[in-house]
Each structure stands twice: as C-alpha cells, then as structure tokens.
Simulated assay, not measured.
Amino acid sequence: MSEVDWLDADEQRIWRSYLVVNSLLEERLDRDLQRRNGLTLVEYGILVHLSEAEGQRMRMRTLADTVIVSKSRLSHQVARLERDGHVRRESCSEDRRGSWAVLTAQGEKALREAAPGHVAAVRAGLFERLSDEQVKRLGEIMEIVERGLRGDEPR
C-alpha cells in the first residue's frame, strides 16, 4: 500500500476556500436568476449554449456534455424549459434514439431579459473583487486546470 500524499496546510486552505467560493457563488447566481427571471442557473446555461449553437439547436447528448450535467438532469431541465415555451425538442432523423433541443423565440426573449442581471451578478460576485492582473492569473489557472481535467494536457 502506497503512502498518502496529504495536502499541506496551504493546499488544504486553498482547496477548502475553493469549495466554499464555488458553492456560494453558484448558489448566489442561481438564487438571483430564479428570483429575477424564474430560471435556474442550469436552465440559463442551457439557453446560452443553445443561443450560441449553429441554428440555435444542439443534440441532447452534446448539450449535456457542454452544460456539464447528467443526461437525466438535462432531460428534466429541458422538460421544464419546454413546458415554459423556451425550448422545443425535435427528433433526430440521423439517429432515431437521439433528439435535438431547439431554442424558441420565447427562449431567446427570456435569455435577453435574464442576461443583463446575470452578468451584473457575475461581475459583482467575482470580477469586481479582483484586480486586472488577478483576473488574468485566474483565467490562466482555470485554463490549466480545465485542460488537465479534460485530459487535453499532461500534468
């Protein structure tokens, strides 16, 4: 049995701080979107990704990977967005088991209405607290960590 490479005191402090910040920021953004616009943070993310996709449509499987949620959670969230008229599902002619999520005009409108408040909340919760240099360093760090976790770059 190999010995555990425990986190040192600084690493432990940083790790715990990261967990708290991630949780608090996500909770604050989710609560703000729900209060202002009746959307969850995940639903907002779905609308954003659909708005940026070619033809404002994405395969459900691809959307789940992009929004970083399980397929069952995505299905539940898309069903809610569909019920509210923001998204519609279309069958995929190439793959009978697959389906498309398509942004509707009502979904575009909901996104346009939610975006300014959401951007302001992101700025207030994260970027306004940092200097320009800190934002740059944070971006570099997040890129390195993301690439490593996605397996795009060896450590």
Rank of each mutant, 00 (worst) to 15 (best):
S70L: 06
S72G: 01
R73V: 05
R73W: 10
R73G: 00
L74F: 03
H76F: 09
Q77E: 15
V78D: 00
V78M: 04
A79G: 10
A79L: 07
R80I: 12
L81P: 03
L81A: 03
L81I: 08
E82Q: 15
E82H: 11
R83K: 14
R83W: 00
R83Q: 13
R83P: 00
R83F: 02
R83N: 09
R83L: 04
R83G: 05
D84H: 12
G85L: 10
G85F: 12
H86W: 12
H86R: 12
H86K: 13
V87R: 11
V87N: 11
V87A: 11
R88F: 06
R88G: 00
R89Y: 01
R89E: 10
E90G: 06
S91N: 15
S91E: 15
S91D: 15
S91C: 05
S91R: 15
S91H: 14
S93R: 14
E94I: 01
E94T: 09
D95L: 03
D95Q: 06
D95F: 07
D95C: 04
D95I: 01
R97M: 09
R97H: 14
R97I: 05
G98A: 15
G98K: 14
S99V: 00
S99D: 04
S99M: 02
A101M: 04
A101Y: 02
V102M: 09
V102C: 10
V102G: 04
L103R: 01
L103K: 00
L103S: 08
L103C: 06
L103F: 09
L103Q: 05
T104R: 08
T104K: 01
A105F: 01
A105G: 15
A105H: 05
A105P: 02
A105L: 11
A105Q: 12
G107A: 03
E108L: 08
E108H: 04
K109M: 11
K109V: 07
K109C: 03
K109G: 07
A110I: 02
A110M: 10
A110E: 07
A110C: 04
A110N: 02
L111N: 08
R112C: 08
E113K: 11
E113H: 06
E113L: 14
A114L: 11
A115P: 00
A115R: 14
A115W: 04
A115H: 07
P116G: 02
G117K: 08
G117M: 10
G117W: 05
G117H: 12
G117R: 07
G117D: 12
H118P: 06
H118M: 13
H118T: 05
H118G: 03
V119G: 09
V119K: 09
A120G: 07
A120L: 13
A120V: 11
A121E: 13
A121P: 07
V122E: 12
V122C: 10
V122G: 02
V122N: 02
R123N: 14
R123E: 15
A124I: 05
A124L: 08
A124E: 15
A124R: 15
G125S: 10
L126E: 01
F127V: 11
F127P: 07
F127G: 10
R129I: 00
R129G: 08
R129S: 04
L130F: 12
S131M: 06
S131I: 01
D132V: 13
D132S: 14
D132N: 11
D132K: 12
